[in-house]
Lab assay of single mutants.
Amino acid sequence: MQIFVKTLTGKTITLEVEPSDTIENVKAKIQDKEGIPPDQQRSIFAGKQLEDGRTLSDYNIQKESTLHLVLR
């Protein structure tokens, strides 16, 4: 499925993911596309910070959902 990741600069990245993917996985995909190390990424969805060990389905993130990426 496709999800979108919006950065603070307003750029939107499209990722191909599975509901079973962990947040860690997703951060690795963002690193592949953007070169941002996962330890600098904070992902926010529906106002909640997403934890690395959880999966997209844990957070009820579905296709075409938009995550927000904040850098630390």
Rank of each mutant, 00 (worst) to 15 (best):
T14L: 08
L50K: 01
Q2L: 14
H68I: 15
D58C: 02
L71C: 07
N25E: 12
S43G: 14
N60G: 14
F4I: 05
P37G: 08
T7F: 15
Q40P: 07
V26N: 00
D58F: 13
K6A: 05
E64P: 00
T9D: 14
P38C: 09
E64H: 14
E34M: 15
L15G: 00
L50R: 00
I44K: 03
L15C: 01
I30T: 02
A28C: 06
D21R: 01
K33E: 09
E34I: 15
K29V: 04
T14E: 07
K29E: 01
Q31F: 15
L8Q: 13
I61W: 01
P19R: 06
G47A: 04
V70Q: 09
T55L: 07
T55N: 02
I13N: 00
A28W: 11
T14M: 12
P19K: 07
I36M: 08
K33S: 11
V5Q: 00
E34D: 09
L15A: 01
N25W: 09
N25L: 13
L8T: 13
S57T: 06
D39T: 10
N25G: 08
N60D: 10
T12N: 03
K11M: 09
E64I: 01
V70W: 07
V26W: 01
I13V: 07
V26Q: 00
G10L: 01
K33R: 10
K27G: 03
F45A: 05
I61M: 03
M1D: 03
I3G: 01
D21T: 09
Y59N: 02
Q2A: 07
D21H: 04
E24Q: 13
L67A: 00
T7K: 02
K33I: 14
Q2S: 10
T12D: 02
F4E: 03
I3C: 03
G53P: 05
I44M: 11
L56G: 01
I36P: 07
I36D: 07
T12K: 06
Q31A: 14
K63E: 12
R54H: 11
E64Y: 14
K33V: 13
H68C: 09
S43Y: 15
L50M: 06
L69S: 02
L15Q: 00
E34F: 14
R72N: 12
S65F: 05
L69P: 00
Q49R: 10
Y59E: 02
D52V: 06
D52F: 02
K6G: 03
E18M: 14
L69T: 02
T22W: 04
A46W: 14
T66A: 03
T55E: 01
V5I: 13
F45H: 08
P37F: 08
D21V: 03
P37R: 10
S65M: 11
P38H: 12
S57C: 03
M1P: 00
T66R: 04
P19V: 08
Y59R: 00
S57M: 12
I36T: 08
D32L: 14
K33Q: 12
I30D: 01
L67D: 00
L67W: 00
D39S: 13
Q41D: 06
K48P: 04
E64G: 15
S65P: 03
T55A: 06
N60R: 05
A46Y: 15
K48T: 12
T9R: 10
E34V: 14
Q2N: 11
Q41I: 15
F4N: 04
L50P: 01
V70T: 08
K48A: 11
H68S: 06
G47V: 03
I30F: 05
G10R: 03
M1T: 02
G35N: 07
D52K: 02
T22R: 06
Y59H: 03
L50Q: 01
Q41P: 07
R72S: 12
L69Q: 04
F45L: 06
K33Y: 11
E24A: 15
L67V: 09
D21A: 06
K33T: 10
P38N: 09
E64W: 14
S20V: 05
M1S: 02
D58P: 00
L56R: 00
F45Y: 12
K63S: 14
I13H: 04
T12E: 04
P38F: 14
P19D: 05
E16C: 13
V5D: 03
L67Q: 00
I13L: 08
Q62D: 08
S20D: 11
T22Y: 05
S57D: 08
K33W: 11
T7M: 15
E64R: 07
V17D: 00
I44L: 13
T66N: 03
L8Y: 12
E64A: 09
T66V: 13
L67F: 02
I61R: 01
E51W: 04
K63G: 12
Y59T: 00
K63I: 06
F45S: 07
G47I: 04
V17C: 04
L8S: 14
E64S: 09
E18S: 14
D39C: 12
V5F: 04
E24L: 14
L69H: 03
Q40M: 13
G10S: 02
D39P: 08
T12H: 06
L69C: 04
K48Y: 10
H68N: 07
S43W: 15
S43K: 06
A46S: 08
P19A: 09
S20Y: 10
S43C: 15
